[in-house]
Simulated assay, not measured.
Amino acid sequence: MTTYVWDYLPEYQNERQDILDAVEKVFSSGQLVLGGSVKGFEEDFAAYHGLRHCVGVDNGTNAIVLGLQALGVGPGDEVITVSNTAAPTIVAIDSVGATPVFVDVRKDDYLMDTDHVAAAITDKTACLLPVHLYGQCVEMAPLRALADRHGLAIFEDCAQAHGARHHGTIAGTMGKAAAFSFYPTKVLGAYGDGGATVTDDDETAANLRRLRYYGMEKTYYVVQTPGHNSRLDEVHAEILCRKLTRLDAYIAGRRAVADRYAEALGDTELVLPAVTEGNEHVYYVYVVRHPRRDEIIEALKAYDIHLNISYPWPVHTMTGFAHLGYTRGQFPVTEELADEIFSLPMYPALSTERQEQVINALREVLSRL
């Protein structure tokens, strides 16, 4: 039986009737774009975070693009973030005409090293963009202090951190606004692309709603400021409405899988995920480290286990961002991690039996290194 890092089919089998009911509800509603399901999901998702506004968009990348634009970030501005992230984070910054400025990450939790942020701030800095990576949050107190001191916006990338908490505060509520992705692999995933930007600020929310709808506000024919066609689909919204009621259960399932890995692999040479003090990890992915990572991944294919790497190429080394002027060696922790990290299978419906097969195969491979 082939095992991948992620598989939606077990979950679909468990929730099939509810998913099909959601599709039937939308198709029978008479409104397929920006209807009751989008409105209902936006209200529920905002309430889950204790915020007043959620604006559903077509994908997580555009949740960042529109969020940055709604905050007034654009050409000539700099946005401080990390290179150890999915490329869409940086693509979004580039898309609004701003310049991404990278800092290195910490070796223990792979998150933004906030000790490096102050030195990266210039008179062009407009925004700090922490990426809550792999399922846990960046240390936020130093960022908030810097933002207050320099008059900067904080915009959280929460694509991998649905439901994660930092000293009791839920991800997405620690800045001016935050972006979420609902790509199918996510902790809260749709059955296709989807995203949302959340905020407690009325003006930012009004900007977001205009931006996702061509720049229009009250009528289809009047553009107030050029925007996008970037609306969350009704079907995905209805599915997300239903799955949101199960989000805490999904998180509990992921933590159970993580606990089994920790118990079974704690005595191996793998470096297992470290949970930073004050964080409540939701384990979007279960990232481990080993200096012979590539050999391990290749050897596991003989057991029909296929793993992946998040992420093998730091963004600052990609040819598409060569214009930023970064070179190898500038972010040593990020580059070291890229050579050693890989992800084990992680999703709530991963059976104990299949996980044990992965663990046993992994231990056998490690014993032969």
Rank of each mutant, 00 (worst) to 15 (best):
G172T: 10
C158G: 12
K176I: 04
E156W: 11
P184M: 06
G97K: 13
T114G: 02
I170S: 01
A119R: 14
A141V: 13
A159L: 08
G189M: 03
L188K: 02
D108E: 14
S181I: 00
F155T: 05
A145V: 04
F155I: 07
D94F: 03
V138H: 09
A164R: 05
A98Y: 12
T185Y: 02
K176N: 14
G135L: 07
D115P: 00
I170K: 03
S95T: 14
D94T: 12
K176W: 08
G97A: 11
Y191G: 00
D148P: 00
G151E: 09
L143H: 11
T122M: 09
A119D: 15
Y134P: 00
C137A: 15
M174D: 03
A119K: 15
L143Y: 10
A119I: 04
T169E: 15
A164I: 06
V131R: 01
K176S: 14
I154T: 10
C158H: 13
P184D: 06
H162F: 15
L128Y: 11
G175F: 12
T185D: 03
A177M: 09
A141G: 09
R165S: 05
H150P: 03
P100V: 02
P142E: 10
F102L: 03
P130A: 01
I154L: 12
G172I: 10
A98L: 12
P100H: 06
T125R: 07
H162N: 10
A120G: 10
M112K: 04
L128T: 10
P142S: 11
D115S: 15
V117G: 08
T169F: 10
I154Q: 06
V105T: 11
M112I: 06
F182Y: 15
K107P: 06
H162I: 03
R165C: 13
L128N: 09
I154W: 09
T99N: 08
T169R: 15
I170E: 03
D123S: 15
A177R: 04
A145N: 07
A141L: 14
E156N: 11
D109C: 12
A171T: 03
G151Q: 08
S95P: 00
D157T: 01
D104N: 11
H167T: 01
D109W: 02
A177K: 05
A159D: 13
T114P: 01
A147H: 10
V138R: 06
C137L: 13
F180P: 07
V105Q: 01
G175R: 12
K124D: 13
M112W: 09
A179P: 08
H166I: 03
L128R: 09
T185G: 12
R165N: 04
G175E: 12
C158W: 12
D108R: 09
L128C: 10
R165F: 05
C137N: 15
F182K: 01
D123M: 04
V105F: 03
D94H: 13
P100W: 07
V101Y: 02
F182Q: 01
T169G: 00
V131P: 01
D157E: 14
V105P: 04
L111Q: 11
H132V: 00
F180D: 06
A98F: 11
V117I: 10
T173A: 14
H132M: 00
M112C: 06
P100M: 03
D157G: 02
F182W: 05
A126L: 08
H167Q: 14
H132K: 00
A179M: 06
F155W: 09
T99F: 01
G175L: 12
K186C: 09
L188G: 03
G163M: 08
